[in-house]
């Protein structure tokens, strides 16, 4: 009895001293540690975003500075009532995001399931399969432009050899094929992201679960639907959310492969903004479009997280 009381006394004592140390030591140090990051994030992420809201309420045109000044909601009214580009580009964004994220998820899942099996040279197969993840949008654009090209493009050559087309097509210059072509190129670059994250969480599924399913005589498909998929749910919800935001904002391939054309058939909302920012001068109007984009993404994120949590309960 004596011993046990002694032990508790010393533990209490040591706990007290630890607490004291933390209080005396921990007052300024953590703040100093986060200070540089804090300054950079606030100064060059949050402040610029803040100014977007300010500029969206201004007439701010670099090419016509004499009209500059407070605009109220003028920019927004123009967007919703007169802008013939707004709705089509919003629809293109929707098309772009849904097809891209959907296809990337499906093929990423297939690739992850394949790479999770045991076979010879698995390490090498994984390394090769993930390469496009490290390749920039611009680089992917330039590589795929060499494939899609009308004169020297290998896709034309292959399709003609297979007898599917009779003469070379300008895939990126035709309204019927441009969108699909860019989708294909972005898909190439996007599959590894899902494959990497899904493979990481596949590896964390306990082996007993597979074995139990096997003992119960579940088919491969049933094992996937009832055993694997529920385990991956959180990863899928989070990665698709991140990817939707990312793809919505992604313009590298659209910018470089088609420039939003032909006839604006590949102009997404972000492509429209990027085009206004890079080639245009009406920053007030561009900022108003940006605010709308931000609102759309925010709304989506809230609804999506709500829905996915709702399913869980």
């Amino acid at each position: 009895m004596d011993i046990s009381s002694g032990v508790t006394e010393t533990t209490i004592k040591s706990k007290k001293t630890v607490k004291k140390q933390k209080i005396t030591k921990g007052n300024m140090t953590p703040y100093l540690f986060i200070l540089p990051s804090f300054i950079l994030i606030v100064g060059f992420l949050f402040y610029p975003i803040g100014t977007v809201f300010y500029y969206s309420l201004q007439h701010y045109d670099v090419a016509a500075p004499f009209y500059n000044g407070f605009a109220g909601l003028d920019n927004f009214v123009t967007i919703f009532t007169q802008d013939k580009m707004f709705l089509p580009s919003l629809l293109n964004s929707l098309k772009w995001v849904v097809t891209e994220v959907g296809l990337q998820l499906i093929f990423g899942m297939i690739l992850a399931l394949l790479l999770n099996q045991t076979f010879k040279l698995r390490g090498m197969a994984r390394a090769v399969a993930f390469i496009p993840w490290a390749i920039s949008g611009v680089l992917a654009s330039s590589m795929w432009s060499l494939i899609f090209n009308e004169h020297m493009g290998v896709l034309n050559d292959l399709l003609m050899k297979l007898g599917l087309i009779n003469e070379p097509q300008a895939f990126l210059a035709s309204t019927t094929t441009a969108f699909t072509s860019v989708i294909l190129a972005e898909l190439w670059r996007g599959i590894p992201f899902f494959a990497i994250t899904l493979l990481a969480s596949l590896q964390s599924i306990p082996v007993d679960l597979y074995e139990a399913a096997k003992v119960d005589g579940a088919s491969r498909w049933k094992t996937f639907i009832y055993v694997i998929l529920p385990q991956l749910k959180n990863t899928i919800v989070l990665t698709t959310l991140l990817r939707v935001v990312w793809e919505f904002n992604n313009v590298d391939l659209l910018f470089n492969l088609t420039g939003g054309g032909p006839a604006h058939s590949t102009t997404t909302l972000t492509m429209y903004i990027a085009d206004l920012a890079v080639h245009g001068s009406n920053f007030g109007y561009g900022s108003a479009l940006t605010v709308i984009t931000f609102a759309i993404l925010l709304l989506f994120a809230i609804v999506y997280l709500k829905l996915s949590r709702y399913e869980k309960e």
Partner: peptide, 27 residues
Amino acid sequence: GKRGFMLMLLCTQFIPRAMMIIPLFII
């Protein structure tokens, strides 16, 4: 403020990159 700081880090992941180019250019 630790939780606030972490929330701030999380929020940045939702900032559209294209949203930043006009203000960054002006800054």
